[in-house]
Computed example of a mutant assay.
Amino acid sequence: MAVFTPVSLDDVSQWITQFPLGQALELKGISSGIENSNFFLTTERGEYVLTLFENLSFEQLPFYLKLMHHLAAHGVLVPAPIANDQGELIVALHGKPASIVTKLAGRSQMAPQPVHCAAVGAMLAKMHLAGRDYPLQQPNLRGLEWWHATTPEVLPYIPADKAQLLKAEVHYQETFAACETYKQLQRGPVHADLFRNNVMFEGERLTGFFDFYFAGCDTWLFDVAVTVNDWCIDLDTGVLDAARVRAMLDAYHAVRPFTEAEQHAWQTMLRAGALRFWLSRLYDYYRPREAEILTPHDPGHFERILRERIATPAPELF
């Protein structure tokens, strides 16, 4: 993620003695993303990821880290949080909550084929099922309530046609969220940000999902929609690739069958997934925070996807 809080190897060398990881050997900032300060950390015991949380509090963080631990225990491929000698997963560094997790093998697949999409779909369904008995509760912090609060923050910066689309889509999603079909959707912990750069592969073998710090409890279908909107599209136009969509949905359905209510909600949920990221990118673009390394994303990408989802029906769930 963008580095908002600079950390040096000297800073980490004393701090890390409380973890069973040996001496810190190398620390390198990660420039992608815009939420937390992330670093690749090499120690005498191996390679890890160090995260300083810029927005999430000590009180909020147990939901995410304990969720990762829970999923790993159920066979879902995710990074394992490392506890210190007091059994704590979250420890202050430079006054910020910080954690260390294992680094996944492989690399992100930025040009996915149907085989990669199928692997992601199957693991996502397994993740949803594994989360059914996770005891902690937290809403999706980038859900409808956040859309309402954030829309007025960005409206002054965008032209009239975009403002009209944004307000109309928030109203559309609010109306849908009040209907009976929405209330019937299966729900539980979701990743909510499962883009290509948050999944690792070695060849065609999926090695893990990571970056769970947008996770929360929401409809599973929203999680599927967010994932399809990134993995199964032409990046220039936002148009869905039918072969990749079919591969992902069929693989998911084979593990956790979709319901009739989900079938009815599918087109609307794809729009919700596009809206969520269009709005967050508008906010990050027009209301940025200072960072040592910052790579803001183009808001127009998800505007195109939203317009495309409104104009063109997607392949059905099953």
Score class of each variant (00 low, 15 high):
residue 3 V to G: 14
residue 4 F to H: 11
residue 7 V to N: 02
residue 10 D to N: 13
residue 11 D to W: 08
residue 13 S to R: 14
residue 15 W to S: 04
residue 15 W to T: 00
residue 16 I to F: 01
residue 21 L to H: 06
residue 22 G to N: 07
residue 23 Q to D: 15
residue 24 A to L: 07
residue 25 L to M: 14
residue 28 K to W: 11
residue 31 S to L: 13
residue 32 S to C: 10
residue 33 G to P: 05
residue 33 G to W: 11
residue 35 E to G: 01
residue 40 F to R: 14
residue 44 E to W: 01
residue 47 E to D: 14
residue 48 Y to G: 02
residue 54 E to I: 11
residue 59 E to W: 03
residue 60 Q to S: 08
residue 63 F to I: 09
residue 67 L to H: 04
residue 74 H to N: 11
residue 77 L to Y: 15
residue 77 L to A: 15
residue 78 V to E: 10
residue 80 A to I: 15
residue 80 A to P: 00
residue 85 D to M: 08
residue 89 L to N: 02
residue 95 G to S: 07
residue 96 K to H: 15
residue 97 P to W: 03
residue 97 P to C: 00
residue 103 K to L: 11
residue 104 L to K: 02
residue 107 R to G: 14
residue 108 S to V: 08
residue 110 M to E: 12
residue 110 M to G: 03
residue 111 A to D: 14
residue 116 H to L: 04
residue 117 C to D: 10
residue 128 H to F: 01
residue 129 L to F: 07
residue 134 Y to R: 01
residue 135 P to V: 01
residue 136 L to V: 04
residue 136 L to G: 00
residue 137 Q to V: 12
residue 138 Q to D: 06
residue 139 P to T: 06
residue 140 N to H: 12
residue 142 R to E: 07
residue 145 E to H: 12
residue 146 W to I: 05
residue 148 H to K: 10
residue 150 T to D: 08
residue 153 E to D: 13
residue 154 V to A: 06
residue 155 L to F: 11
residue 157 Y to I: 09
residue 158 I to Q: 00
residue 164 Q to T: 15
residue 165 L to M: 02
residue 174 E to V: 02
residue 175 T to N: 12
residue 175 T to H: 09
residue 176 F to V: 06
residue 176 F to A: 05
residue 179 C to Y: 00
residue 182 Y to A: 06
residue 183 K to N: 10
residue 184 Q to K: 13
residue 186 Q to K: 14
residue 186 Q to R: 15
residue 188 G to M: 07
residue 190 V to K: 08
residue 190 V to C: 15
residue 193 D to E: 01
residue 194 L to K: 08
residue 197 N to L: 08
residue 202 E to Q: 14
residue 203 G to W: 02
residue 207 T to P: 05
residue 207 T to F: 04
residue 209 F to I: 07
residue 210 F to T: 03
residue 211 D to F: 10
residue 212 F to L: 12
residue 212 F to G: 09
residue 214 F to T: 12
residue 216 G to W: 12
residue 217 C to S: 13
residue 222 F to T: 08
residue 223 D to P: 06
residue 224 V to F: 03
residue 224 V to K: 05
residue 227 T to L: 06
residue 230 D to Q: 05
residue 233 I to G: 01
residue 233 I to A: 06
residue 233 I to N: 05
residue 236 D to W: 04
residue 237 T to S: 15
residue 238 G to C: 04
residue 240 L to N: 00
residue 245 V to D: 03
residue 245 V to F: 07
residue 246 R to G: 13
residue 249 L to R: 05
residue 251 A to L: 03
residue 258 F to P: 03
residue 258 F to N: 04
residue 260 E to K: 14
residue 260 E to W: 12
residue 264 H to L: 15
residue 265 A to T: 09
residue 266 W to A: 01
residue 266 W to I: 00
residue 268 T to V: 13
residue 268 T to L: 08
residue 273 G to A: 12
residue 274 A to D: 11
residue 275 L to T: 11
residue 277 F to N: 03
residue 280 S to W: 08
residue 284 D to Y: 02
residue 285 Y to E: 02
residue 285 Y to S: 08
residue 287 R to S: 03
residue 290 E to T: 14
residue 290 E to C: 12
residue 291 A to E: 02
residue 291 A to S: 03
residue 294 L to G: 05
residue 294 L to D: 01
residue 298 D to C: 05
residue 300 G to F: 10
residue 302 F to D: 11
residue 303 E to W: 04
residue 305 I to M: 09
residue 305 I to H: 02
residue 307 R to I: 04
residue 308 E to A: 08
residue 312 T to A: 10
residue 313 P to E: 04
residue 316 E to V: 14
